[in-house]
Design a protein around this nucleic acid. Structure first.
Lengths: 116, 116
DNA sequence: TGCCATAGTATACAAAAAGATACCTACAGG
DNA sequence: CCTGTAGGTATCTTTTTGTATACTATGGCA
């Protein structure tokens, strides 16, 4: 890939079955605890939630704040740097939305059940 | 995912180990034969190339034109609709590029070898 | 007659990602 | 002293992706 194509880099940090949803919620709520994320995303396992959060943290997209308490309390929030993702996420969301319509046009309504 | 987040839809059509590279080449050359893609992307197997192309075709991003010849000749090109991806791909590329720099800043040069 | 080319399939296999389930810690409340 | 809690790990199995290799059809060419 002729050295200048970094689309994959962007893809890398967004890919992972749960990352978009996780980001969506943290962007929306500003700050969320581990357990709140679990509640908001009922089907995710702790393992998946942990690994996805760690990857986002590694990329400096989210912040992890641990309170020295028992039982533990950990809060996640978007970093200032992470907020720079907003335009990209918006573009992707918008393109995705119109693409669903396009698929609908060319293949018919049958595709709509796919993501509900 | 509260019904309005379609980031994943965009992700879906771009994900697959080879899709970005394939798109990159077809966007650049306008039209490419199967064998030319193979030559441009030496590590891809025929099977992968075929499946990725078929997925892109399903999403109306690329066009597949078969010539009734022997030996076969098949040309791939970006559809008009597919060209609408350009701004998104550009944004992703640009974000990816600056993200690599950011990672470099926070973790040091060691990350650069990752994508060369 | 046998060989080459192109654009694939078919089959088998390996590796990576995701899921299920059990377990851990250490304090607080009863 | 037993139990519950929050935020995880550890381990194992399943599913999804990707890789390797062999095979096919058809016609032109030597």
């Amino acid at each position: 890939m002729p050295h200048e194509c970094k689309v994959e880099t962007a893809l890398d940090i967004l890919v992972g079955k749960w990352k978009p949803v996780i980001l969506f919620h943290i962007f929306q709520e500003e700050v969320l605890r581990f357990s709140e994320l679990q509640r908001l995303i009922p089907d995710i396992t702790k393992k998946m939630l942990t690994t996805q959060l760690r990857e986002l943290e590694y990329h400096d997209i989210i912040n992890r704040k641990v309170y020295a308490q028992v039982p533990p309390k950990v809060e996640y929030s978007i970093t200032d740097y992470g907020k720079g993702l907003t335009p990209l996420l918006d573009s992707m969301h918008n393109w995705g939305l119109s693409h669903l319509e396009h698929l609908d046009q060319i293949y018919g309504e049958s595709k709509l059940e796919k993501n509900n």
